[in-house]
Amino acid sequence: MFPTKTDSRRRLNATAYLNVENTKAAADTTEPDGFVNEQWTAPNVDESTPWKTIAIIITLFIGGTTCICCAALDWLADANQNRSDRIWALIIIGVLTIIPGGYYFYILSCILMRRQGYTMDDIRRLG
């Protein structure tokens, strides 16, 4: 049965290959379907150490820790609760910086300790 002009393109493509036998693909550089064997090799990526990203990670972690420590000290020293707005601001800033800083600091420390499964590819390059 031949397809008519009203059939869709998908149906035309599907019926065109029904009577074709499977053949083994050639092993040369270009496959018959248009793909090139070089596209399956790993690209040459610059493997330099991302120092700017490491500095941002350490800054976030130390800054968040400092903000939370200062908020805790203000909370302990403020007996009359006069400066609670400053304490909440420091806690919020500290939490917002220590969460990504702590996460990437943990990954960075695992990389430096050479644990299995951690590579520099796990750290997103920021700079």
Rank of each mutant, 00 (worst) to 15 (best):
M1T: 04
F2H: 09
T4I: 05
T4W: 06
T4M: 07
K5E: 15
K5V: 15
T6S: 10
R9M: 12
R9D: 15
R10D: 09
R11M: 09
L12F: 07
N13D: 11
T15G: 14
A16E: 14
A16Y: 07
Y17Q: 13
L18S: 14
N19H: 08
E21S: 06
N22S: 10
T23V: 12
A26D: 11
A26H: 10
A27I: 10
D28W: 07
D28N: 12
T29F: 06
T30Q: 09
D33G: 08
D33Y: 05
G34Q: 04
G34N: 02
G34M: 04
F35D: 08
V36F: 12
N37E: 13
Q39P: 03
T41P: 10
T41S: 15
A42Y: 11
P43G: 00
P43F: 01
V45D: 14
D46I: 02
S48C: 07
S48K: 05
T49M: 15
K52Q: 13
A55F: 15
A55V: 12
I56W: 02
I57D: 01
I58T: 04
I58Q: 03
I58L: 04
T59Y: 09
L60G: 00
F61D: 12
I62W: 13
I62V: 15
G63T: 06
G63I: 02
G64F: 01
G64Q: 00
T66C: 13
C67T: 05
I68L: 10
I68D: 01
C69T: 13
C69D: 08
C69E: 12
C70R: 09
A71C: 04
A71T: 02
A72F: 04
A72H: 03
D74C: 08
D74T: 03
W75P: 03
L76H: 14
D78Y: 02
N80I: 03
N80W: 06
N82D: 15
N82S: 13
N82W: 05
R83P: 04
S84C: 12
D85M: 03
R86C: 01
I87L: 08
W88G: 07
W88L: 12
A89E: 05
L90W: 06
I91C: 14
I92P: 00
I92T: 04
I93K: 05
V95Q: 10
I98V: 06
I99C: 07
P100I: 00
P100Q: 00
P100V: 00
G101Q: 04
Y103S: 15
Y104K: 09
Y104C: 06
Y104G: 04
F105E: 09
Y106C: 15
C110R: 00
C110F: 01
L112K: 14
M113G: 13
R114P: 08
R114H: 12
R114A: 11
R115Y: 05
R115I: 10
Q116H: 07
G117R: 01
G117P: 00
Y118V: 01
T119K: 03
M120C: 03
M120W: 02
D121A: 11
D121T: 12
D121G: 11
D121R: 10
D121Q: 09
D122A: 07
D122Y: 02
I123Y: 01
I123S: 03
R125P: 03
R125E: 11
L126Q: 09
G127L: 06
